[in-house]
Design a binder for these strands. Structure first.
Length: 137
DNA sequence: GCCAACGTTGGC
DNA sequence: GCCAACGTTGGC
């Protein structure tokens, strides 16, 4: 199983909306590197759900339900794809960007190294470390 | 609101 | 094919 991180501006599409809807097609990715990451996702993979810009925190975990398919919001024949995601678990405590940066185990996190990329791979150890930071006390 | 990073576009 | 200009993203 592989692990990922997807970003969303909460003002555009929040974790709360994602939970309310029970899942979504992760559309709107218009960057080739991010698209390649979407295409590498397999059902059963888990993705950290990160709120960018206003909150800057990992807030939950999504489950990949279906492999990449053409993005319905893109022009027909375009190279853009979307995967189907559904909520897997909320974090007891959001893990802020500052906490990610402060943790030595996460120094190699793709999110930190390439902050503009909206879909990034996450190593299993990194994924576990983030979940541990998000556990309640 | 500013600006750094970085991807894309278009002139040559 | 190079690279300057420009647009977008996202942290601060």
């Amino acid at each position: 199983m592989n692990h990922w991180l997807v970003k969303s501006e909460p003002e555009a599409y929040s974790w709360a909306a994602f939970v309310r809807e029970g899942g979504t097609d992760w559309t709107g990715v218009r960057n080739y590197q991010a698209r390649n990451n979407l295409q590498a996702m397999r059902p059963g993979d888990l993705a950290l759900f990160y709120h960018s810009v206003s909150e800057k925190a990992v807030v939950g975990v999504a489950l990949v339900e279906a492999v990449a398919a053409p993005d319905a919001t893109a022009e027909a024949g375009s190279p853009w794809v979307a995967v189907r995601l559904r909520p897997h678990a909320a974090l007891a405590r959001p893990v802020p960007l500052a906490a990610l940066k402060a943790d030595a185990r996460l120094a190699g996190l793709a999110l930190l190294r390439q902050s503009r990329l909206s879909v990034t791979p996450v190593r299993a150890e990194e994924f576990d470390a983030v979940l541990a930071l998000g556990e309640g006390n």
